[in-house]
């Protein structure tokens, strides 16, 4: 078994972003649906979404256990599930990820670029009135970044929640590199 990068690009997994009503037991509903239907989950992260009455669950699923289409349709039968997006598998690192779309006119954009530089964050997309930024790293660092971003209008915010793997020694890390993964696995 090779080490698995939950946001990696291997072909046997898919990533679902599931917007749910933020209510007691909703995670249990999702988890028990996967268990009952025999769908395997590689990783799962939950955090409140931009609307505090809702949460986003990012689930990395095993496509060998069932077709993604069935998983999506069965998930959508849960009354608490509001929206499901299939995300393209993409490169990421472990720990935690923050994605935020911030409303920004041309004047504010440079302030946000400055913020991004300080935090060693990234600008993923620039629109006419908004930018989408990302920051990977320790959750504490993400908290600080989010707090500063909050002085601008956050349109959408998604944090993956903590995803952690034990540290490996150098030899083990080399062994763990999956030759099928196109992205870095730093």
């Amino acid at each position: 078994m090779t080490a698995f990068n939950p946001h990696g690009t291997s072909l046997n997994h898919g990533i679902l972003s599931v917007l749910v009503q933020n209510r007691p037991g909703v995670l249990a509903r999702v988890a028990s649906l996967f268990a009952r239907r025999g769908y395997n989950i590689f990783s799962l992260a939950v955090a409140p979404a931009e609307d505090e009455t809702q949460s986003r669950i990012t689930i990395v699923v095993d496509l060998e256990s069932a077709p993604l289409e069935q998983m999506v349709k069965q998930l959508f039968k849960l009354v608490d599930v509001v929206k499901i997006s299939e995300l393209d598998p993409r490169r990421s690192i472990e720990r935690e990820l923050l994605l935020a779309t911030v409303r920004a006119d041309t004047g504010q954009r440079s302030e946000i670029v400055e913020l991004v530089k300080i935090f060693e964050a990234k600008i993923l997309a620039v629109g006419s009135d908004a930018v989408t930024v990302s920051l990977e790293g320790h959750p504490d660092k993400l908290d600080d970044f989010e707090e500063l971003l909050d002085s601008y209008a956050i349109v959408e915010l998604q944090r993956t929640g903590r995803v952690a793997l034990p540290k490996l020694d150098r030899a083990a890390r080399l062994r763990a590199v999956n030759p099928n993964q196109k992205g870095k696995v730093s």
Binding site: P24, G25, A28, R29, S32, L33, R36, K77, V79
Partner: peptide
């Protein structure tokens, strides 16, 4: 009860 009946109901709710 809501845990036990989760997979045998369309929906269930513990009213608090």
């Amino acid at each position: 009860t809501v845990g036990i009946t989760r997979s045998c109901t369309k929906h269930n709710e513990l009213v608090m």
